[in-house]
Structure formats: C-alpha cells, structure tokens
Design a protein around this nucleic acid. Structure first.
Lengths: 272, 272
DNA sequence: ACAAAAGTGTTTCCTGTACACCCATGA
DNA sequence: TCATGGGTGTACAGGAAACACTTTTGT
C-alpha cells in the first residue's frame, strides 16, 4: 500500500490518471542495412516493478492537456520533439497494480531515424528492437504489441510512414519503412508506381549522390505534416492488398478539436 | 509526490475522470421506411449547462473498469445491454468547463432497433436523430460528430453492422444499415453478391413472410458477436471502394486484455 | 565489363460497378 | 395483371501483383 491511512478510501473514489507514450523510430540494421523498428524504454526506479523496463510516462497533472503530457514524456526521455503523436488507447482495468487503481492514457509517437540516433540514452533510458521487447513492467508488453499492430494497420492508409523520414527521401527509403513496419518485402517496381501516382508526394530535382549504384531521385512529402489528430484507423484491417498509397482518403473524420484544443466532456449525471 | 499531498495540491495534480457513452441505434423512418441513426441523450439536471441535452455518463469510481462503467451508462439510461461497446477516445483538454479540470473517456455502443424501441424514454432521457443533434452541453456536439465518423469508417470493414440487427436478418435489412450509416444508396445486386461471398454470414432455411413482395431469405451472422475489443480502425479512411464485406480481416490486432480484463499501465517515473 | 540498384513496360488477374434481366409474391 | 422488391448474369473499367526489361552509377 501507499502511505497515508485513508488511502483505501480515496482509491475507491478517484483512480489516478497517468500518461504513457510508445515511441517508435527506425534504425538501420548494421548487418543487413534494412531499417527496423526500435523504441526507447526507461528503467523503473521505484516499486512496483523496480528495475524493470517500462514505457516512458508519468502522472497527469491538472495543467497540461493529454497531448502535451505525452509530448513532454517524449522530450524528457529522448530530448526529441514528436513528428507524430497520437492517442492510442486508454487502459483502465482494476486487476492490476496491487498498490493503486490507475488509468493510463497511452499515446504513440514516431520520430525520425537521425533523431533517434542522437536521442539521449543512459543508464536508465535505452533503445530496444521492437521485435525483442519482453518482460516489461506492468502490461507494457501487451501495450507495445498493440501499438505495433496499430502502426501496421495505420501505415496501410496514409501519411504515417512519412513521419519516420526526413523531408527529403528516396523511394527506396520509403519502401524500407513499409517493409520494416509490415515485416515483408515489397516489389520495388510496383511500390514506385503506386507512390508516383500518390497525390501528396512530389519528386524534387535532387538526387542522392554517394551510393554504390545509380543515384536515386529524392522525393518530398507534400501532405499535412501534422497528421489526422486523434483519429484512428488503427487495425487497418480491411485493406487486403497491402499498400494503398495515396489513393486512400487522408483524414475523412477529424477528431473535433481534440489535438490543439482538446475537448472535455463532463458527466451528465442523468436520471434519478 | 503521490498521495500525501494536501487537498488543494491534489486538485492540481489529478483531474477527475468521467466516462461518457454515445449510444447508436437504428430506427425506421415512419415516412420512408428507411432506417436512420438515432441516439439517446439525457437532460442535465445540474450546472453547468443545466437543462441542456448531453451524452449519458458519469464519474468513474475506483471499482469498475472503463468498459463496465460505459456499460452501466448504457443500462442506466436506456435499460439496454450493449451488443457492441468500444472505446472511442479520451478527451482531456483544459480549456473547458470553468468549474473543473476533467478528463472524459468516451465509449460508443450499438444497440438493436427492437431494443431501441423498448428503451426507456422519459422527461430527462430522449432519443434524437443523429443528423439533428445540435446545441448539446459541453463539446458533445463534436463528440457525436466524431463518433458518427468513426461509425462510418468502421462499418466499411467488418462486423459492426451486424450489431444493429437481430440474429436473423434479410440482406435488405443489412443493406439498410449500410445505407443509413454511409448516407447513400447501394446497389442491391452488388451488395448481395459481396455479402454472399462474405465468410461470416450464412443463409438460413427460413424466409421472412408477410411482406408485400417476394419473401426474402433470412441470414445469420456467424462471426464473433463480441467484436474487436478496444481495437480501432476508426476513420476507416483508406477503403475507397465502399463496402469491403467479409473479405477484410476481422480482428487483426486485438487490444491486449483491454475488454474483459482491462489493462492498467502505470507511470514509469523515468529519469531524475 | 560487371554488379546492383533505379526506373519503365507489359501482362494477368481480381474486384467493384453498372445495368439488363428473370422470379416470386400481394394486391 | 401489374407493381415491387428478391435474386441472377454479365460485360466493362481500374488497380494490384508478377516479372521481364532498360538505364545509370560505382568499382
């Protein structure tokens, strides 16, 4: 139990609220050169689960929006600003954490690889391959798995992939993102064709010099950098074909003001 | 910094948590006979926004899961048990409700039309056409609009549509659901063909007698009644074609235990 | 010259769409 | 019998998948 005597009383009244953030970045595998998905974790320095790795997060105070709190998580653990940040899910069961009833609103973020390389790492903050995380504190294993699923689903639509990359990129790099997320190889020819016809990607005059082969052209993402707010297609399910580049709609259903000007709904306290 | 703080301190730290629920049902228009989307609202009997209509909801106490609280909303306002219940979004801005900082986790539910007809209505609980709600308390206008968008998105995948119907239904009824949600007419012939080939729908031996025309065959939904938990494809975006009946995957990314055994993630309290 | 990636063309297949048509029933 | 919706057949168009092929670079 925690500390003061009337804890049990207060537990019944109001669950505490915390924000956690799953931060994804791509990093090229040193052997194959292929990009892989990585994420930073922090080591718990308190009970429960002391010493185990966990998602960055902390309690929500009354002065910042959910979004802001998640962005702060990101800054504090990695020194990065998010290029993509979206609400994932609110977890709030009771069969957990013997010490205290807790509701966690989980966000997920994407950062660019150059950034991820620079990102702070220390004794208590380290990056892990997403495919290898296991044994995290609380339910964070499952939350990471869920976030990965959502990432996979979401990339099939739209604009998420670009948030892994800088503002100039080759089609091979973009394809690398898709391959890392979807976990399978894609036909370069068809990939190219699909994305050339995508509306919100434009070729530049530049090419990327210095490679061993023919220098590829650089492209630029012309769509909105700030993505579909809270909106979510999550699982991505339906799309059986694979990619669905720019053909799909981008942000058909905007969450109200939930991002910049977040929304509060108050209890109705209906009948009686 | 957790529990021992005094009261004023704690207010700043911990926003209150509420659950609200958007409940959708179909009801046949008396004139055209076409189904339309309706939802129940409750009249506020307290400040702020006293007297205005609002989504059913209430504060979350420490003894029930988010899911359970939403189900209770549903029961208390409409006397119905949900055939579908899923988390929509967590709203938690500060620029709201002058009286109090509040985070609301919003669920959405689908109920069947027969049930909706029986559902309790009273002075303080009434059903409204979804297309006509306006002037609700707080941001509930926007939340409803967001929920409608998600519904539209979601129906293009998978199994949601069936939750509006009983366990036996004609293809015309099913098509009615889609038309009501998508807001456009669909070709009966193609609709039929797509759904006949859908895996999780099976014809029965029965037909629906008593109509003015040829008696249509009754079908049965064979997929999971309890849907993809917390998972969310939300906006539905990508699917440009329209329906995507059973072809799509059903529940490719299950949220961990979030439904039956909800999950709690605790703050990591990383560095420092 | 050769390897390897960039980039193009072509063919096949699948699926959604449109629409013409027959079938069964009640009035 | 006729109107109406249930139910079937079919032809067309667009896009994805597969893969052969040409182009451009570094070594």
């Amino acid at each position: 139990m925690d500390s003061s005597a009337n804890v049990s009383e207060r537990q019944v009244q109001a669950p505490s609220l915390a924000i956690s953030t799953v931060i994804f970045a791509l990093r090229d595998d040193t052997a194959t050169g292929r990009p892989e998905i990585w994420l930073p974790l922090v080591r718990r320095i308190r009970q429960p689960h002391l010493g185990r790795w966990a998602l960055p997060g902390g309690p929500l105070d009354g002065r910042e929006s959910l979004q802001d709190a998640a962005a702060r998580n990101l800054r504090e653990t990695t020194d990065l600003d998010p290029t993509y940040l979206e609400q994932l899910y609110a977890f709030g069961g009771l069969d957990r954490s013997a010490t205290q009833r807790l509701v966690s609103i989980v966000y997920w973020a994407l950062v660019r690889p150059e950034q991820a390389d620079l990102a702070r790492a220390s004794e208590n903050v380290q990056w892990f391959r997403a495919s290898e995380v296991a044994g995290l504190a609380f339910d964070h294993d499952e939350i990471v798995a869920y976030a990965l699923g959502r990432l996979r689903g979401k990339i099939e639509y739209g604009s998420v992939a670009y948030h892994f990359l800088g503002d100039r990129f080759t089609l091979a790099q973009l394809r690398g993102v898709y391959e890392a997320v979807l976990g399978k190889q894609l036909d370069p020819a068809n990939f190219r064709r699909q994305f050339r016809s995508a509306k919100d990607i434009a070729p530049t005059d530049e090419v990327l010099q210095g490679g061993r082969n023919r220098p590829p052209r650089l492209y630029r993402y012309t769509g909105a950098r700030a993505d579909p707010p809270g909106v979510d297609d999550g699982t991505g399910a339906g799309t059986r074909t694979g990619l669905a580049p720019g053909t799909g709609v981008r942000n058909p259903v905007g969450v109200p003001g939930a991002m910049q000007a977040d929304v509060v709904a108050e209890a109705a306290g209906g009948q009686s």
